[in-house]
Design a protein around this nucleic acid. Sequence first.
DNA 1: GGCAACACATTTGTTGACAATTTTGGCAGC
DNA 2: GCTGCCAAAATTGTCAACAAATGTGTTGCC
Lengths: 227, 227
Amino acid sequence: MAARARTRAGGANAPKSVAAILAALRERIANQEIPPGAKLRETELAVEFKVPRTRIREALNTLEQRRLVERIPNRGAVVSRLDYAQALQIYDLRIVLEGLAARRATENGPAARWKKELESFKGPMKAVVASNDLEPYIERYESMRRAIIAAAANPLLAEMLDNIYEKTQVLIRRILILPGRAEVGRLQHVAMLQAMASGKAQEAERLRREGLGSARLHLEKFQKYLL
Amino acid sequence: MAARARTRAGGANAPKSVAAILAALRERIANQEIPPGAKLRETELAVEFKVPRTRIREALNTLEQRRLVERIPNRGAVVSRLDYAQALQIYDLRIVLEGLAARRATENGPAARWKKELESFKGPMKAVVASNDLEPYIERYESMRRAIIAAAANPLLAEMLDNIYEKTQVLIRRILILPGRAEVGRLQHVAMLQAMASGKAQEAERLRREGLGSARLHLEKFQKYLL
DNA sequence: GGCAACACATTTGTTGACAATTTTGGCAGC
DNA sequence: GCTGCCAAAATTGTCAACAAATGTGTTGCC
């Protein structure tokens, strides 16, 4: 009775597959539960997840290739730190990639597909932003973003965006907190969705690039507060 | 005397590190030495490279993440086949990514940096293309491309382009063979390099997009001959 | 008291052996 | 002669023990 720790012991989680471990680790790194610079000890993770160390090793390998951790020979893996230059580079990539996504999504889907999103950003979200209630807004934003990427129907593009987006989730929130930024962003989304709902693909791409470009400018301007 | 196969036996190559194995495999896949659909047997490769199977397994893992091979559980790894839809998607990505590279390269480097490349495409390469001598032209093109990507100074961008470019090397050659395509491409490069040598970053991006866009159109038009 | 060298403990890297699954080959039956 | 099934071989997946390297604490010396 005392030391019963059989099938799924007290703790919390006991995933098995490599994919599960990977997801867990990605999650933790994304919301800084494991902060940048922290060391990932293989043995430690092995006992936590209750899998052989080889499994952890494999997960660490893919994490390394996604540049989420850095690995120094014989010294282990530490989660990568995102410096200013890198952040700007990532924004450059987001600008062109999400621009492409917006264009193709507009071309692919029926224009009406975007009416619903548009109304949400025009109406309810306006109040949400005004009340400084960020979490629901972020949720809506990410949902729209995912919808666009999915509609673009380009798996490789989706994967690339996935890889770089997860490295900036913290940053995005910090930018959004900047005074006035959320409302500016909302208006930009409205403009872009309007273009999409009218089937204007090139215009949608231009607007998406403009929107992310302005976010990038904020990053440059408020560098010291953001990183 | 008979069965002496110690240090580095007859064969040809005996790399050891994972990186070396990876490079070798990437090379073979790129020039279809191992054709799409071929099966990669772990044991076989392990004997050839004279490394434990685990090492091969690791290499196969990273090859899988780069989408160069597909892995079916308990059934092994086969090199990925590039279908028409994927090829188009890759061109979409090249268009926006290399467009970005051209823009940033123009902004970063001194404009004069591109004079040399420009002259080469204006002069010597004209004759090379006219004589249908493709290999030197391709070499020059790839060298220019690498220079631009390097000058863009965005490691993440460079990596992404590396990952998708290697999947299309065969395709690029086939497009280049199409009647008139090489000369059209040369002229487009001249125009872009002219913009770069004049420091016109946005113009350079536009022209790069245009050039790759026209290559993409060729791909659409001659689909049946290319794949 | 500070510094260097040594030994111990911890952590990562490597390997071969074992288990599970799929493919191949052969055989009997229809 | 072809089809379905069973057994053997080959191939992939899993693991735990061993080896190498690094970090840490202690001792002895100046």
